[in-house]
Amino acid sequence: MNEYRILIAPLPDADGGGYVAYIPDLQGCMSDGETPEEALANLRDAYAEWIDTYNKLGREIPEPGTYGRAMKAKHHEFDERIEKLDADVKDLRERAEQFSAWLRFSELTGVEPDGPSPSFAPKLC
């Protein structure tokens, strides 16, 4: 258990107070207690049961640090998605500005530019 990162946090009074201790790498491996020390002692028992259950079920036990690496990967994926959305929004704004200018030209001159509407114009059914 010493290799795994252990987190201990206070519980709100609405949840009974005390403390919760858990191991993020081992999903569901947690316990609680009135004090941080009691929560940690109870977590040692929960850890032993968690490992025993996973072994009996033939499941692979995650390596220490697995949760942190997974969260970093998710964070990186999230950052990439945000960058893509930012680029898409910028492109849509540029298209909207171009289309607005095209409409203003058409309204002011009464003349539509030759050919089909520009590629930035919305497609009408």
Results as ranks from 00 to 15, higher is better:
residue 25 D to H: 13
residue 97 E to Q: 03
residue 89 V to L: 07
residue 111 V to K: 14
residue 87 A to R: 09
residue 123 K to Q: 02
residue 64 P to G: 11
residue 35 T to L: 05
residue 93 R to A: 06
residue 48 A to W: 15
residue 81 R to K: 13
residue 98 Q to F: 11
residue 61 I to L: 06
residue 122 P to D: 10
residue 103 L to P: 12
residue 103 L to D: 14
residue 41 A to D: 08
residue 62 P to V: 07
residue 38 E to P: 11
residue 27 Q to N: 02
residue 29 C to H: 10
residue 24 P to M: 08
residue 63 E to M: 12
residue 102 W to L: 03
residue 16 G to I: 12
residue 8 I to M: 03
residue 57 L to N: 14
residue 112 E to L: 02
residue 71 M to D: 12
residue 119 S to R: 11
residue 91 D to I: 06
residue 48 A to N: 12
residue 15 D to I: 13
residue 105 F to V: 10
residue 63 E to H: 15
residue 114 D to N: 10
residue 5 R to S: 09
residue 27 Q to D: 07
residue 94 E to A: 10
residue 10 P to D: 14
residue 2 N to D: 11
residue 69 R to M: 11
residue 96 A to T: 08
residue 81 R to F: 11
residue 101 A to F: 12
residue 51 I to D: 04
residue 122 P to I: 02
residue 113 P to Y: 15
residue 10 P to R: 07
residue 60 E to I: 09
residue 11 L to K: 03
residue 13 D to Y: 09
residue 3 E to G: 05
residue 59 R to A: 07
residue 30 M to N: 15
residue 84 K to A: 14
residue 101 A to V: 02
residue 107 E to D: 09
residue 68 G to S: 12
residue 116 P to A: 15
residue 43 L to K: 04
residue 4 Y to L: 06
residue 84 K to N: 15
residue 81 R to Q: 11
residue 115 G to F: 04
residue 15 D to S: 04
residue 27 Q to G: 03
residue 11 L to T: 00
residue 49 E to A: 13
residue 89 V to R: 15
residue 34 E to I: 10
residue 43 L to C: 09
residue 23 I to D: 12
residue 88 D to G: 00
residue 55 N to A: 15
residue 110 G to Y: 09
residue 25 D to E: 13
residue 19 Y to K: 08
residue 102 W to C: 07
residue 115 G to N: 09
residue 52 D to K: 13
residue 40 L to P: 15
residue 44 R to T: 03
residue 118 P to N: 06
residue 18 G to S: 00
residue 65 G to D: 13
residue 111 V to N: 14
residue 112 E to A: 05
residue 39 A to N: 08
residue 119 S to V: 06
residue 81 R to G: 02
